[in-house]
Design a protein around this nucleic acid. Structure first.
Lengths: 278, 278
DNA sequence: CAGTGGTCTAGACCACAAT
DNA sequence: TTGTGGTCTAGACCACTGC
């Protein structure tokens, strides 16, 4: 094995799966596919088997050893293929056991973001069976450069922050963070007493204080940090869904009275909202 | 190199960065960190340098060769470290050039999902500067098992499908898919003529036909397939944001008149929505 | 204990970018 | 031509799981 051993993929060895047309010329329908790196071809082949059900959800993939001589490649190549599937969220691997086809994505539970109002009382997703996992983390700080524009405040102004981890009967978890400008606490009766109450309560206090509320929601997604992945029970290859809600006065939307952030695992939870034509 | 060469990380070689305490015992504050695999330690070190600004956004990381002898490890180990950063979306690598610290996430552009109504005319995000990139793909098919419940239809019933790729002046792109039940086309005047019009137009036709509309929105995220990544200009380590909107009658929400799906890259676009307390 | 995946080395060739 | 990242091999030891 000292001579050239790579280049066009092996053509003689024990290959019993798509290896592209023989390196010659007469490229068949998809010349592109044939020229993909070997590990991608293997990943593609396994992906195919998963989608067609040859490899059913929950089932283990063949072991690395088996794949190595089935495809006639080195271990590192097989591992590269499996890694690609893992990054795509198609399989999960368990050390010492095997790599398994990700279970049929259990239909995520809905987290309904719709804000419902009955008189001066508000109801939010939290009332939908969510409970605190642990004592909330509460502290007072000053807004930094990144947060200031979000709250319509100047850098350095004081805010209260409340961070909570909630759980749902389905097993899903969310991290909820809330920022309340200090000035809001001191001027709105009721909030002063407990600036760390649940959002629905704060909406109520604000409304009772004669403010017309308006909300600006934004949703985005990104890959989680290792920490976030564990607290939200996210496997590798699973992104993070992030929803932020800013509460402002219906008139002056430049200054916000409240800012909330919700982080969740989209394989367990789906964000929903109801609207109707007015 | 036939004898043991791994085990506790190298301790003698040219290491000038966190390598954990010497394998002995007196584990310092964080014994955990010291026992991480070498490539994770390196990734952690680079991550640190990125967050503290030692490696500024847009700047290239040291080349693999440099990292190899800076940390005294093999190339594959360095590459594993860089791969971890890439998967976390912290860096992007350009073949033949270098690996760069991901640019400070340009503030994503808002895609406002709020539906606005003026008389019988509706306005949606599409009116916000979005244009078609290419001729829409339109076809007629029958709903399959997965889609039937979403539309409140029976499996096998006919639907029209319209798939469009839109672009925005900011450079962002979205894929928009729409399903219209055949029965809706035939019973609602106006839609019959053009079942592939933009959603806002369809909302108008439905309203003109005397229906009170109601919408159910759901948002989720997942890793893109390679295809999706390229059409939406997503780098590696960037998830896909998916928003679906189902239009139903305000009374009977079990049967839907329309279903839309929106796929986008969250680093370029952020989904927003406005609400006010009624 | 055997089997599986996790980490690592040393060395090779290829493809792309810039000089 | 040089340097960078991309793919690949062959072989080794480690760590976890389960018999």
């Amino acid at each position: 094995m000292s001579t050239v051993n790579q280049d066009t993929p092996h053509t003689a060895p024990p290959v019993d799966v798509p290896n592209g047309p023989p390196p010659g010329t007469g490229t068949s329908s998809r010349a592109l596919l044939a020229r993909l790196p070997r590990y991608q071809q293997i990943a593609e082949d396994l992906r195919e088997q998963i989608h067609t059900g040859v490899l059913a959800p929950g089932e283990p993939l063949p072991s690395e050893t088996v794949l190595i001589d089935r495809y006639g490649v080195s271990r590192i190549t097989v591992r590269a293929a499996v890694r690609a599937l893992r990054a795509a969220g198609l399989v999960i691997t368990e050390h010492g056991r095997a790599t398994y086809v990700r279970l049929a994505p259990t239909q995520p539970v809905d987290l309904d973001l719709t804000i419902r109002r009955v008189g001066d009382r508000f109801h939010t997703w939290e009332d939908d069976g969510w409970t605190l996992v642990e004592e909330p983390t509460r502290y007072r700080t000053t807004v930094d450069q990144a947060l200031a524009p979000q709250l319509g405040m100047a850098e350095g102004e004081p805010v209260f922050v409340c961070e909570r981890l909630l759980t749902h009967p389905s097993g899903a978890r969310v991290v909820h963070r809330m920022w309340v400008p200090f000035t809001v606490c001191t001027t709105v009766p009721g909030i002063e007493a407990d600036p760390f109450a649940a959002p629905a309560a704060l909406y109520g206090h604000l409304t009772a204080a004669g403010r017309d509320l308006s909300w600006h929601d934004a949703t985005t997604a990104r890959m989680p940090t290792p920490d976030e992945a564990t607290t939200l029970k996210a496997d590798e290859g699973v992104p993070l869904l992030i929803h932020t809600r800013t509460t402002t006065g219906a008139g002056d939307q430049s200054q916000s009275m409240l800012r909330e952030e919700l982080c969740l695992n989209p394989t367990l939870l789906s964000l929903t909202q109801e609207t109707s034509a007015r």
